[in-house]
Protein backbone atom coordinates (compact mmCIF):
# COMPACT_ATOMS: atom_id res chain seq x y z
CA UNK A 1 0.00 0.00 0.00
CA UNK A 2 1.13 3.51 -0.67
CA UNK A 3 2.44 5.46 2.23
CA UNK A 4 -0.35 7.96 2.67
CA UNK A 5 1.65 10.40 4.71
CA UNK A 6 3.98 10.96 1.79
CA UNK A 7 1.18 12.10 -0.49
CA UNK A 8 0.65 15.75 -1.08
CA UNK A 9 -2.66 17.30 -0.18
CA UNK A 10 -3.74 17.37 -3.81
CA UNK A 11 -2.75 13.76 -4.32
CA UNK A 12 -4.63 12.76 -1.23
CA UNK A 13 -7.64 14.61 -2.45
CA UNK A 14 -7.52 13.01 -5.88
CA UNK A 15 -7.06 9.60 -4.31
CA UNK A 16 -10.16 10.19 -2.22
CA UNK A 17 -12.02 11.29 -5.30
CA UNK A 18 -10.95 8.06 -6.91
CA UNK A 19 -12.89 6.27 -4.22
CA UNK A 20 -15.86 8.54 -4.73
CA UNK A 21 -15.29 10.80 -1.74
CA UNK A 22 -15.43 14.51 -2.31
CA UNK A 23 -12.97 15.69 0.23
CA UNK A 24 -13.20 19.09 1.76
CA UNK A 25 -10.20 21.27 2.36
CA UNK A 26 -7.25 19.20 3.42
CA UNK A 27 -5.56 21.26 6.06
CA UNK A 28 -3.54 20.48 9.13
CA UNK A 29 -6.52 19.67 11.28
CA UNK A 30 -8.28 17.53 8.70
CA UNK A 31 -5.47 15.75 6.91
CA UNK A 32 -5.09 12.95 9.42
CA UNK A 33 -8.79 12.23 9.21
CA UNK A 34 -8.77 12.07 5.44
CA UNK A 35 -5.70 9.86 5.47
CA UNK A 36 -7.45 7.49 7.78
CA UNK A 37 -10.55 7.56 5.63
CA UNK A 38 -8.57 6.79 2.50
CA UNK A 39 -6.84 3.94 4.26
CA UNK A 40 -10.18 2.53 5.28
CA UNK A 41 -11.52 2.87 1.77
CA UNK A 42 -8.48 1.15 0.36
CA UNK A 43 -8.78 -1.69 2.81
CA UNK A 44 -12.46 -1.94 2.03
CA UNK A 45 -12.02 -2.06 -1.72
CA UNK A 46 -9.23 -4.59 -1.54
CA UNK A 47 -11.38 -6.72 0.69
CA UNK A 48 -14.10 -6.62 -1.94
CA UNK A 49 -11.61 -7.60 -4.55
CA UNK A 50 -10.56 -10.69 -2.69
CA UNK A 51 -13.97 -11.48 -1.44
CA UNK A 52 -15.08 -13.73 -4.23
CA UNK A 53 -12.68 -16.54 -4.81
CA UNK A 54 -9.65 -15.85 -2.79
CA UNK A 55 -8.47 -18.36 -0.32
CA UNK A 56 -9.78 -18.41 3.18
CA UNK A 57 -6.54 -17.25 4.69
CA UNK A 58 -6.63 -13.91 2.95
CA UNK A 59 -10.25 -13.39 3.76
CA UNK A 60 -9.90 -14.08 7.43
CA UNK A 61 -6.92 -11.79 7.47
CA UNK A 62 -8.88 -8.87 6.19
CA UNK A 63 -11.66 -9.73 8.53
CA UNK A 64 -9.34 -9.44 11.48
CA UNK A 65 -8.40 -5.99 10.33
CA UNK A 66 -12.01 -5.08 10.13
CA UNK A 67 -12.56 -6.37 13.62
CA UNK A 68 -9.77 -4.27 15.02
CA UNK A 69 -11.08 -1.25 13.29
CA UNK A 70 -14.48 -1.93 14.64
CA UNK A 71 -13.08 -2.11 18.12
CA UNK A 72 -11.31 1.13 17.65
CA UNK A 73 -14.31 2.83 16.32
CA UNK A 74 -16.90 1.53 18.66
CA UNK A 75 -15.15 1.30 21.95
CA UNK A 76 -18.25 1.79 23.95
CA UNK A 77 -20.62 -0.23 21.89
CA UNK A 78 -19.50 -3.79 22.05
CA UNK A 79 -22.91 -5.07 21.21
CA UNK A 80 -22.88 -3.39 17.84
CA UNK A 81 -19.47 -4.90 17.22
CA UNK A 82 -20.78 -8.39 17.75
CA UNK A 83 -23.66 -7.59 15.50
CA UNK A 84 -21.28 -6.53 12.83
CA UNK A 85 -19.28 -9.67 13.18
CA UNK A 86 -22.33 -11.87 12.81
CA UNK A 87 -23.12 -11.48 9.11
CA UNK A 88 -19.48 -11.31 8.30
CA UNK A 89 -18.76 -14.70 9.75
CA UNK A 90 -21.71 -16.08 7.87
CA UNK A 91 -20.44 -14.73 4.63
CA UNK A 92 -17.06 -16.07 5.53
CA UNK A 93 -18.42 -19.57 5.78
CA UNK A 94 -20.17 -19.11 2.49
CA UNK A 95 -17.12 -17.97 0.70
CA UNK A 96 -14.89 -20.40 2.43
CA UNK A 97 -17.13 -23.13 1.10
CA UNK A 98 -16.40 -22.00 -2.39
CA UNK A 99 -12.86 -21.36 -1.44
CA UNK A 100 -12.54 -24.94 -0.31
CA UNK A 101 -13.73 -26.18 -3.65
CA UNK A 102 -11.85 -23.67 -5.68
CA UNK A 103 -9.08 -22.76 -3.35
CA UNK A 104 -6.89 -25.73 -4.03
CA UNK A 105 -6.13 -24.39 -7.40
CA UNK A 106 -5.92 -20.76 -6.60
CA UNK A 107 -3.73 -21.43 -3.60
CA UNK A 108 -1.31 -23.67 -5.33
CA UNK A 109 -1.03 -21.44 -8.34
CA UNK A 110 -1.00 -18.24 -6.36
CA UNK A 111 -3.40 -16.78 -8.85
CA UNK A 112 -6.64 -15.06 -8.11
CA UNK A 113 -9.40 -15.69 -10.53
CA UNK A 114 -12.50 -13.58 -10.77
CA UNK A 115 -15.77 -15.05 -9.75
CA UNK A 116 -16.81 -16.08 -13.24
CA UNK A 117 -14.07 -18.62 -13.20
CA UNK A 118 -15.34 -20.54 -10.29
CA UNK A 119 -17.72 -23.01 -11.96
CA UNK A 120 -15.21 -23.92 -14.55
CA UNK A 121 -12.55 -24.13 -11.92
CA UNK A 122 -14.61 -26.39 -9.81
CA UNK A 123 -15.19 -28.72 -12.64
CA UNK A 124 -11.64 -28.42 -13.66
CA UNK A 125 -10.51 -29.33 -10.23
CA UNK A 126 -12.74 -32.33 -10.06
CA UNK A 127 -11.54 -33.46 -13.36
CA UNK A 128 -8.03 -32.63 -12.38
CA UNK A 129 -8.32 -34.70 -9.28
CA UNK A 130 -9.65 -37.53 -11.31
CA UNK A 131 -6.71 -37.43 -13.55
CA UNK A 132 -4.16 -36.46 -11.04
CA UNK A 133 -3.01 -40.05 -10.67
CA UNK A 134 -2.70 -40.43 -14.37
CA UNK A 135 -1.53 -37.10 -15.59
CA UNK A 136 -0.05 -35.31 -12.67
CA UNK A 137 2.52 -33.57 -14.80
CA UNK A 138 -0.04 -31.88 -16.99
CA UNK A 139 -0.58 -28.20 -16.42
CA UNK A 140 -4.03 -26.77 -16.24
CA UNK A 141 -5.30 -23.60 -17.77
CA UNK A 142 -8.77 -22.26 -18.23
CA UNK A 143 -8.04 -20.70 -21.55
CA UNK A 144 -6.74 -23.92 -22.89
CA UNK A 145 -9.86 -25.52 -21.63
CA UNK A 146 -11.95 -22.97 -23.50
CA UNK A 147 -9.89 -23.38 -26.61
CA UNK A 148 -10.35 -27.06 -26.29
CA UNK A 149 -14.12 -26.68 -26.21
CA UNK A 150 -13.96 -24.42 -29.19
CA UNK A 151 -11.81 -26.82 -31.08
CA UNK A 152 -14.20 -29.54 -30.38
CA UNK A 153 -17.11 -27.48 -31.57
CA UNK A 154 -15.41 -26.27 -34.71
CA UNK A 155 -16.42 -28.05 -37.91
CA UNK A 156 -12.97 -29.59 -38.27
CA UNK A 157 -13.52 -31.82 -35.30
CA UNK A 158 -15.18 -35.01 -36.13
CA UNK A 159 -18.68 -35.16 -34.73
CA UNK A 160 -18.64 -38.89 -34.95
CA UNK A 161 -15.60 -39.01 -32.79
CA UNK A 162 -17.12 -36.85 -30.09
CA UNK A 163 -20.21 -38.94 -30.16
CA UNK A 164 -18.18 -42.02 -29.78
CA UNK A 165 -16.38 -40.37 -26.97
CA UNK A 166 -19.52 -39.49 -25.11
CA UNK A 167 -20.68 -43.04 -25.33
CA UNK A 168 -17.49 -44.42 -23.97
CA UNK A 169 -17.19 -45.20 -20.29
CA UNK A 170 -15.72 -42.40 -18.32
CA UNK A 171 -12.30 -43.78 -17.56
CA UNK A 172 -11.70 -44.60 -21.16
CA UNK A 173 -13.03 -41.30 -22.24
CA UNK A 174 -10.45 -39.44 -20.27
CA UNK A 175 -7.70 -41.55 -21.67
CA UNK A 176 -9.03 -41.09 -25.13
CA UNK A 177 -9.11 -37.37 -24.65
CA UNK A 178 -5.57 -37.41 -23.46
CA UNK A 179 -4.51 -39.17 -26.59
CA UNK A 180 -6.44 -36.82 -28.80
CA UNK A 181 -4.99 -33.59 -27.57
CA UNK A 182 -1.52 -32.19 -27.55
CA UNK A 183 0.41 -32.49 -24.43
CA UNK A 184 0.32 -28.94 -23.24
CA UNK A 185 -3.42 -28.67 -23.16
CA UNK A 186 -5.43 -30.43 -20.62
CA UNK A 187 -8.35 -32.37 -21.85
CA UNK A 188 -11.73 -30.99 -21.30
CA UNK A 189 -14.15 -33.41 -19.86
CA UNK A 190 -16.46 -30.78 -18.53
CA UNK A 191 -18.64 -31.30 -21.55
CA UNK A 192 -19.24 -34.79 -20.44
CA UNK A 193 -19.52 -34.23 -16.76
CA UNK A 194 -22.89 -35.62 -15.92
CA UNK A 195 -24.56 -35.95 -12.57
CA UNK A 196 -23.73 -39.66 -12.62
CA UNK A 197 -20.10 -38.91 -12.26
CA UNK A 198 -20.52 -36.70 -9.26
CA UNK A 199 -20.27 -39.27 -6.47
CA UNK A 200 -17.04 -40.46 -7.89
CA UNK A 201 -15.71 -36.99 -7.99
CA UNK A 202 -16.72 -36.21 -4.47
CA UNK A 203 -14.61 -39.05 -3.20
CA UNK A 204 -11.59 -37.55 -4.78
CA UNK A 205 -12.12 -33.93 -3.92
CA UNK A 206 -9.65 -34.11 -1.08
CA UNK A 207 -6.86 -35.07 -3.39
CA UNK A 208 -4.85 -32.05 -4.17
CA UNK A 209 -4.11 -31.99 -7.86
CA UNK A 210 -0.59 -31.25 -8.81
CA UNK A 211 -0.40 -28.35 -11.13
CA UNK A 212 2.20 -25.98 -12.41
CA UNK A 213 1.85 -22.26 -12.73
CA UNK A 214 0.24 -21.16 -15.93
CA UNK A 215 2.91 -20.16 -18.39
CA UNK A 216 0.79 -18.93 -21.24
CA UNK A 217 -0.14 -15.55 -19.87
CA UNK A 218 -0.99 -14.00 -23.19
CA UNK A 219 -3.67 -16.50 -23.95
CA UNK A 220 -4.71 -16.16 -20.37
CA UNK A 221 -5.19 -12.45 -20.81
CA UNK A 222 -6.85 -12.54 -24.18
CA UNK A 223 -8.98 -15.60 -24.46
CA UNK A 224 -11.19 -15.94 -27.46
CA UNK A 225 -14.47 -15.48 -25.75
CA UNK A 226 -16.85 -17.51 -27.81
CA UNK A 227 -19.79 -18.77 -25.85
CA UNK A 228 -19.78 -22.42 -25.18
CA UNK A 229 -22.80 -24.68 -25.21
CA UNK A 230 -22.09 -25.60 -21.63
CA UNK A 231 -22.91 -22.04 -20.63
CA UNK A 232 -19.58 -21.79 -18.90
CA UNK A 233 -17.76 -18.83 -20.26
CA UNK A 234 -14.29 -18.84 -18.92
CA UNK A 235 -13.47 -15.28 -19.71
CA UNK A 236 -11.23 -13.17 -17.62
CA UNK A 237 -13.19 -10.34 -16.22
CA UNK A 238 -12.06 -7.31 -18.11
CA UNK A 239 -11.32 -3.93 -16.71
CA UNK A 240 -13.58 -1.03 -17.47
CA UNK A 241 -11.08 0.23 -20.01
CA UNK A 242 -11.22 -3.01 -21.91
CA UNK A 243 -14.99 -2.99 -21.88
CA UNK A 244 -15.01 0.54 -23.15
CA UNK A 245 -12.99 -0.60 -26.14
CA UNK A 246 -15.78 -2.66 -27.56
CA UNK A 247 -18.22 0.12 -28.37
CA UNK A 248 -15.40 1.89 -30.20
CA UNK A 249 -15.09 -1.01 -32.55
CA UNK A 250 -18.82 -0.95 -33.02
CA UNK A 251 -18.61 2.72 -33.86
CA UNK A 252 -16.10 2.15 -36.60
CA UNK A 253 -18.47 -0.23 -38.29
CA UNK A 254 -21.15 2.39 -38.08
CA UNK A 255 -19.18 5.36 -39.40
CA UNK A 256 -20.46 5.22 -42.99
CA UNK A 257 -23.94 5.23 -41.57
CA UNK A 258 -23.60 7.64 -38.74
CA UNK A 259 -26.80 8.74 -37.04
CA UNK A 260 -26.59 12.14 -38.71
CA UNK A 261 -26.41 10.75 -42.21
CA UNK A 262 -29.20 8.34 -41.46
CA UNK A 263 -31.34 11.17 -40.29
CA UNK A 264 -30.50 13.20 -43.35
CA UNK A 265 -31.45 10.35 -45.60
CA UNK A 266 -34.70 9.89 -43.83
CA UNK A 267 -35.45 13.55 -44.26
CA UNK A 268 -34.52 13.35 -47.93
CA UNK A 269 -36.94 10.49 -48.36
CA UNK A 270 -39.66 12.57 -46.92
CA UNK A 271 -38.90 15.68 -48.97
CA UNK A 272 -40.86 16.23 -52.22
CA UNK A 273 -38.76 16.42 -55.38
CA UNK A 274 -37.47 19.76 -56.59
CA UNK A 275 -39.60 19.94 -59.75
CA UNK A 276 -42.73 19.39 -57.72
CA UNK A 277 -41.69 22.21 -55.48
CA UNK A 278 -41.17 24.51 -58.48
CA UNK A 279 -44.51 23.57 -59.99
CA UNK A 280 -46.28 24.19 -56.74
CA UNK A 281 -44.54 27.50 -56.39
CA UNK A 282 -45.57 28.56 -59.90
CA UNK A 283 -49.13 27.45 -59.29
CA UNK A 284 -49.29 29.44 -56.11
CA UNK A 285 -47.83 32.44 -57.82
CA UNK A 286 -50.37 32.17 -60.61
CA UNK A 287 -53.19 31.80 -58.15
CA UNK A 288 -52.07 34.82 -56.18
CA UNK A 289 -51.81 36.83 -59.38
CA UNK A 290 -55.30 35.80 -60.40
CA UNK A 291 -56.66 36.79 -57.05
CA UNK A 292 -54.92 40.12 -57.30
CA UNK A 293 -56.29 40.72 -60.79
CA UNK A 294 -59.81 39.71 -59.83
CA UNK A 295 -59.68 41.89 -56.73
CA UNK A 296 -58.39 44.88 -58.63
CA UNK A 297 -61.71 45.58 -60.37
CA UNK A 298 -64.07 45.30 -57.43
CA UNK A 299 -61.68 47.39 -55.41
CA UNK A 300 -62.56 50.37 -57.46
CA UNK A 301 -66.24 50.02 -56.88
CA UNK A 302 -66.50 50.44 -53.13
CA UNK A 303 -64.08 53.27 -53.17
CA UNK A 304 -65.92 54.93 -56.01
CA UNK A 305 -69.17 54.50 -54.15
CA UNK A 306 -67.58 55.95 -51.08
CA UNK A 307 -66.13 58.79 -53.06
CA UNK A 308 -69.49 59.34 -54.67
CA UNK A 309 -71.21 59.46 -51.32
CA UNK A 310 -68.54 61.84 -50.05
CA UNK A 311 -68.99 64.08 -53.02
CA UNK A 312 -72.74 63.93 -52.54
CA UNK A 313 -72.68 64.98 -48.90
CA UNK A 314 -71.37 68.48 -49.36
CA UNK A 315 -74.07 68.90 -51.90
CA UNK A 316 -76.67 67.83 -49.38
CA UNK A 317 -75.50 69.92 -46.44
CA UNK A 318 -75.89 73.33 -47.98
CA UNK A 319 -79.37 72.44 -49.09
CA UNK A 320 -80.41 71.69 -45.50
CA UNK A 321 -78.76 74.86 -44.35
CA UNK A 322 -80.64 76.66 -46.98
CA UNK A 323 -83.80 75.10 -45.70
CA UNK A 324 -83.10 76.21 -42.10
CA UNK A 325 -82.13 79.71 -43.12
CA UNK A 326 -85.19 79.92 -45.22
CA UNK A 327 -87.23 78.78 -42.21
CA UNK A 328 -85.59 81.42 -40.00
CA UNK A 329 -86.24 83.97 -42.60
CA UNK A 330 -89.82 82.92 -42.77
Amino acid sequence: MVDLSSLTDAQLKSQLLHYGVKAGPIVGSTRALYERKLQRLMAHSSQFKFNGTSDAAKYSDSEEDEGEEEEEEEEDEEESGSEQLGPESVSRTETSATARTVGLYSQSKDLIYPQCFSPALRQGKKRGSLESSRSSSQSFSITELVEEIENRLSPQSKPAATERCSQMPKEKRVLWDLQQLNKNTMTNTSLYLTPQCLPHQKQTTTIKPACEPVTDILTELFPDTVTTPTGITATKRRSIKGAAGRPVQFKYLETPLSPATLERREIQHRLVPLWVQIVVFLLLAALLYLIYVSIEDPLENPFSVLLDSLSDEPALAPSSQDVSTSEVAA
Binding site: L33, Y34, K37
Partner: peptide
Protein backbone atom coordinates in the same frame (compact mmCIF):
# COMPACT_ATOMS: atom_id res chain seq x y z
CA UNK B 1 -17.47 23.20 8.81
CA UNK B 2 -14.04 22.50 7.37
CA UNK B 3 -15.00 18.84 7.43
CA UNK B 4 -17.97 19.84 5.31
CA UNK B 5 -20.42 18.82 8.01
CA UNK B 6 -19.50 15.22 7.36
CA UNK B 7 -20.76 13.17 10.25
CA UNK B 8 -18.29 10.34 9.95
CA UNK B 9 -15.28 12.61 9.77
CA UNK B 10 -16.46 14.86 12.54
CA UNK B 11 -17.15 11.96 14.84
CA UNK B 12 -13.73 10.61 14.02
CA UNK B 13 -12.12 13.90 14.77
CA UNK B 14 -13.97 14.34 18.03
CA UNK B 15 -12.94 10.91 19.14
CA UNK B 16 -9.34 11.63 18.28
Amino acid sequence: LVLKKDEELFRDWLKD
